[in-house]
Design a protein around this nucleic acid. Structure first.
Length: 226
DNA sequence: ACCCAGGGTCATA
DNA sequence: TATGACCATGGG
């Protein structure tokens, strides 16, 4: 991964889309809940689920930790996969409770935080990294489906590389800067939602000059490996 | 009627 | 190690 290219892509996306001010949440705990609810789901639906949790007074680790899975499932139903996500929310809430809340967890070193998150049910590489970056401001370059698709279409990667390999490639090419990674990932998603979808919509895409996609193509990623 | 969305886990070979 | 199946709602 070439530093100059990555920085040029960031600059082009920033100019086109402007600062994104991520993560759209009012607290670190809301970031964590949102990161689980958004898994393979449209943000609109995750927002509906968040609103229902808030309305029930359940957007709170103590409250969620003490709730029954069926009750939480009813609140988060609009986000889909609700039987899984309810269990995940309860588990992460109990972990927070046991570890001294957000303040306690915030004291962990980057690696310890990542390992703790990754050990929780339903928190994989990407969700753990998104929480590390957006809830705890750790310098982690998050690789999601949009990032993978964008970099593949720009010809920088194949697209089927393991998660850790892509993350390391980006982090070793760029300065370790949480604020920069925050903005970069948010821009990739903002851009991806508009243009870099499985069936590309390349009209007025600011990266068209660098893009290797056959215009109009269907062209999506190869299955990813681990 | 499809296609898509800011993944993760488990069974199988 | 590596594919496939499964989870599920809501909007375009």
């Amino acid at each position: 991964m070439d530093r100059g290219v990555l920085e040029a892509v960031h600059a082009a996306l920033l100019e086109r889309h402007g600062p994104q001010h991520w993560w759209p949440a009012d607290s670190a705990f809301e970031v964590i809940v949102g990161a689980i609810l958004i898994q393979r789901t449209a943000w609109r639906n995750a927002e509906l689920a968040l609103a229902r949790l808030r309305g029930a007074g359940a957007l709170d680790p103590e409250r969620l930790a003490a709730s029954a899975p069926d009750e939480v499932a009813a609140w988060v139903r609009p986000a889909g996969f609700y039987r899984h996500k309810s269990v995940r929310l309860i588990a992460v809430s109990r972990w927070l409770q046991a570890a001294g809340g957000i303040a306690g967890v915030a004291g962990l070193a980057d690696e310890a935080l990542a390992a703790s998150l990754r050990a929780l049910p339903g928190i994989g590489d990407e969700t753990a990294d998104a929480i590390s970056l957006y809830a705890f401001e750790r310098p982690v370059f998050v690789i999601d489906a949009y990032a993978r698709r964008l970099f593949a279409r720009l010809g920088l990667i194949r697209g089927d590389e393991p998660y850790a390999e892509l993350r390391a490639a980006c982090e070793s090419a760029l300065a370790r800067d949480a604020a920069y990674y925050n903005e970069y990932h948010a821009l990739i998603v903002a851009h991806g939602k508009q243009y870099c979808r499985p069936r590309p919509r390349c009209t007025e895409c600011v990266l068209a000059a660098r893009c290797t996609v056959p215009r109009g193509g269907p062209f999506d990623l190869p299955a990813r490996r681990r």
